[in-house]
């Protein structure tokens, strides 16, 4: 479920990036790369688990599924937090700098 949720997040962020391309003011590319990177890594993890467990991999316990889903959502949230922090640090539109200089 974690892999599935991360793949959905990667696809959605890629669609948003494509819609706004070639403008990259919101740095959505960073979000895409982050989710795709994690998805690829979890895909390898899933393949290794499948090799070890066989078909049992596709029939997880309900409690495991709920835990994995919760983890997937937390991962997506963490990705969004990393992205927003990166956006504020890089500040491509200069909004943060402008508001800080106004307050100073």
């Amino acid at each position: 479920m974690t892999l599935l949720i991360t793949i959905f997040a990667a696809v959605i962020s890629t669609v948003i990036w494509y819609k706004n391309a070639p403008k990259n003011e919101m740095k959505t590319g960073t979000l895409c790369f982050m989710y795709w990177g994690a998805s690829l890594m979890w895909l390898v993890d899933a393949i290794v688990e499948y090799i070890e467990m066989g078909a049992e991999y596709f029939t997880p316990e309900l409690s495991d599924m709920i835990n994995d889903s919760f983890l997937g959502l937390c991962v997506v949230a963490l990705g969004l937090i990393i992205w927003i922090v990166t956006l504020f640090i890089k500040d491509p539109k200069g909004v943060v700098r402008k508001s800080l200089s106004k307050n100073a």
Partner: peptide
Amino acid sequence: NKMLWGGSALLAFEHIW
């Protein structure tokens, strides 16, 4: 870099979990 850093960070979180 973005794929590697992002992926590693999210996987590290999973390991903490």
